[in-house]
């Protein structure tokens, strides 16, 4: 069976090489896999983007779900320190592992509520205790 990019049978990849030792990595449009996956995993922190992905039926695609599971390497060192939106990225990555959330985020109301909550928390988290 052919294992295309959106097939579950794609070989499980190792996390990409770190920027400092990935000098001769293959490039995709001028960017390394590390850069692209870092950008993507952080884009997932945007509830609107997730809503968009859900509306395009990406979140129900088993291959995409497997990719989301693979992306969890960002929760561990040495990759963790490259996240510039750590809080929302890690939370979303965690939520995206749950099937219920992947189904629910298709609702614009939920996306909106998440945006509200996210903004509110970002403004107020440091005022607690």
């Amino acid at each position: 069976m052919e294992s295309g990019p959106m097939s579950v049978d794609s070989a499980a990849l190792d996390p990409p090489a770190l920027p400092e030792d990935g000098a001769n990595e293959p490039k995709y449009g001028g960017h390394s896999r590390f850069e692209l996956e870092l950008e993507f995993v952080q884009s997932l922190a945007n509830p609107q983007y997730l809503n968009y992905l859900a509306s395009r039926k990406f979140l129900t695609n088993p291959a995409f779900v497997a990719y989301l599971e693979y992306l969890q390497y960002w929760t561990r060192p040495p990759y963790l320190k490259y996240l510039t939106f750590p809080t929302s990225t890690l939370k979303m990555l965690e939520l995206l592992q749950q099937e219920k959330f992947r189904q629910d985020i298709i609702s614009p109301d939920l996306a909106h509520a998440m945006i509200m909550e996210g903004m509110k928390t970002a403004v107020e988290w440091h005022r607690e205790g």
């Binding site: 449009g29 960017h31 692209l36 950008e39 945007n46 809080t87």
Partner: peptide, 18 residues
Amino acid sequence: FHPWPTEAQIRSGALASI
């Protein structure tokens, strides 16, 4: 202020260029 990448940022990123 957004605690995540904005749509504009996503649209101007590497993935979009690809």
